[in-house]
Amino acid sequence: MLIALIERDDELHIIFTERALHLRHHPGQVSFPGGKHETFDSSLQQTAIRETNEEIGIKPEFIEIIGQLPSLKTTSGFEVFPIVAFVDQRFSLNIDANEVKSVFEVPLRFLLDSKNFHLQHLIANKKRHSTYCIGYQNNLIWGATAQMLKNLQQLLLSNDV
């Protein structure tokens, strides 16, 4: 997954995708660009860059990797590896409709405000789970994506950074 930071109007935003509705896994959910590591990928960073280019058309030369968050295991059995990068605002989108329904951005300052995170409970795989939810405009960010944002928030707001 690529947590893509982009500067707009003198502040940072994060790029999100809404997954295509026909996908087998997590259709219609908000996520970061990214996907499955392939054997030909030289690293997880290269996977995130390649998948971002395939899904929404941001060319590798517009992406500068700056770090990685700890991996996250999801309730649906996936393990994701969030890669953090700056994206040059001169990119142009080229959305692959087979994978992505839409793309939107959220100001980082909104995502750093703990008041915008709400804890919800749900049943998945016959077990009760807690998940963070963040509403922004007409979009609901929840599940693993929201947890990665919470992890990023805690990292950026800690005294260690």
Rank of each mutant, 00 (worst) to 15 (best):
H26R: 15
H26L: 15
P27N: 05
G28H: 05
Q29K: 11
Q29D: 15
V30I: 09
P33A: 08
P33D: 10
G34T: 01
G34V: 01
G34N: 02
K36D: 11
K36F: 12
E38P: 05
E38G: 07
T39S: 11
F40M: 08
D41K: 01
D41S: 01
D41Y: 00
D41E: 05
S42N: 12
S42H: 14
S42E: 06
S42Y: 09
S43C: 05
S43A: 04
S43L: 01
T47D: 06
T47C: 11
A48T: 00
A48S: 07
A48R: 01
A48Q: 01
A48K: 00
I49T: 09
I49S: 13
I49D: 06
R50G: 09
E51S: 05
N53K: 13
E54C: 10
E54K: 15
E55P: 03
I56F: 03
K59S: 11
E61P: 14
E61M: 08
F62Y: 15
F62L: 10
F62V: 08
I63E: 05
E64S: 14
E64C: 10
I65A: 02
I65T: 07
I65W: 01
I66F: 01
G67S: 11
Q68R: 01
L69T: 00
P70L: 02
P70E: 12
P70T: 06
S71F: 08
L72V: 02
L72E: 06
L72K: 02
L72T: 01
K73D: 07
K73Q: 07
K73L: 04
K73T: 06
T74D: 14
T75H: 14
S76M: 13
G77W: 01
G77V: 01
G77P: 13
E79R: 10
E79K: 10
F81D: 02
F81A: 02
P82M: 00
V84C: 00
V84K: 00
A85T: 02
A85P: 06
F86A: 07
F86K: 11
D88R: 13
D88E: 05
Q89G: 13
Q89A: 07
Q89L: 04
Q89H: 13
R90H: 14
F91Y: 15
S92C: 13
N94P: 08
N94A: 15
N94W: 10
I95C: 10
A97P: 11
N98Q: 15
N98C: 09
E99Q: 15
V100W: 05
K101W: 14
K101L: 11
S102C: 06
